[in-house]
Design a protein around this nucleic acid. Structure first.
Length: 275
DNA sequence: CCTTAATCCTGGAAGC
DNA sequence: TGCTTCCAGGATTAAG
């Protein structure tokens, strides 16, 4: 459930702690969550972290263009947390990988359900080729013309198309539902029946929605937290996600809850009609 | 081309 | 209280 705003919040809260720091040791407690080499060298031991990039829900932690790097995907329940020295021990269960920064603290990847993972690569270029090339443009920077051409290629419903990371990268179940409500569009509205003007409105609404969610440091449903262990406050601003049966904030009708595109979907039957 | 379902997995909630 | 059952879903794969 970490989606673009949550992953971006993790990126921003992690970078100040690990940027410029050298990884002095790597512990792999569950090798299955690491794809690619899981030796300490492959997982960046000895390297100074120089950057963290993000595309959609994917993170790339790197140490320069010619050095090994790691990709992290948080899946459903994954978290990437920085623990400063002297901090009390948090939950140690389901911590699969730990990176130590000498006496400056450590970073840990924890993921109870293990839908996420860590991927090691020899260079950022190889990582992007393997992990990012099949992703559509990031939802924060996609251009209206680009999204329009991608949506008009498919007759699927909007919800299915927006969840498809090869169309646009970063939306998950929460923000797809919130976006469709903001636009008053039915989740099953055929993607290829949106006008260019409607797609332009969609891009603007998407940027506004995601920017506001990032400003609130993401949505904490269940136990999501950022790299410093802080929760996000955007869940309190959800208009539809998690509110099935409750009144629509716009018209007061009971919100409809229905499985669409294989996902629990909440929308307003009055405000988001299929026409 | 499309959709649905199964798969991975655990914790929390609901039901009895 | 304590057990069982269900449900949540990101991504991938297979089947229809």
């Amino acid at each position: 459930m970490p989606e673009l705003p949550e992953v971006e919040t993790v990126r921003r809260s992690l970078l100040p702690h690990v940027g410029g720091r050298r990884i002095t040791a790597v512990e792999v407690h569950r090798p299955q969550v690491v794809r690619g080499g899981h030796s300490p060298q492959a997982l960046m031991r000895g390297l100074v972290v120089t950057g963290i990039d993000r595309r959609g829900k994917h993170l790339l932690i790197s140490a320069g263009p010619q050095s090994p790097c790691i990709c992290v995907h948080l899946g459903m329940t994954g978290s990437l947390r920085f623990c400063p020295p002297g901090a009390g021990p948090g939950r140690g269960d389901h911590v699969h990988v730990r990176w130590r920064f000498g006496n400056h603290g450590h970073m840990e990847f924890r993921d109870p359900r293990r839908f996420g993972g860590v991927w090691s690569f020899n260079t950022p270029e190889a990582a992007m080729r393997a992990r990012w090339s099949s992703l559509g443009p990031d939802a924060l920077i996609i251009r209206p013309r680009d999204l329009h051409s991608r949506l008009t290629r498919t007759g699927r419903g909007l919800k299915a198309a927006l969840l498809d990371q090869s169309v646009v990268a970063g939306l998950g179940n929460i923000y797809a539902d919130e976006l469709l409500f903001a636009l008053r569009l039915h989740p099953q509205h055929p993607a290829n029946r949106l006008s260019a003007a409607q797609v332009q409105q969609m891009v603007y609404a998407m940027r506004r929605l995601l920017a506001r969610a990032i400003a609130a440091r993401g949505s904490s449903v269940r136990d999501y937290h950022d790299a410093e262990g802080n929760h996000g406050s955007y869940a309190a601003l959800h208009q539809v996600y998690g509110r099935g049966g409750q009144p629509c904030t716009s018209c007061g009708a009971a919100l409809q809850r229905q499985t669409i595109a294989g996902r629990t979907t909440v929308f307003c039957r009055q405000c988001q009609q299929l026409c």
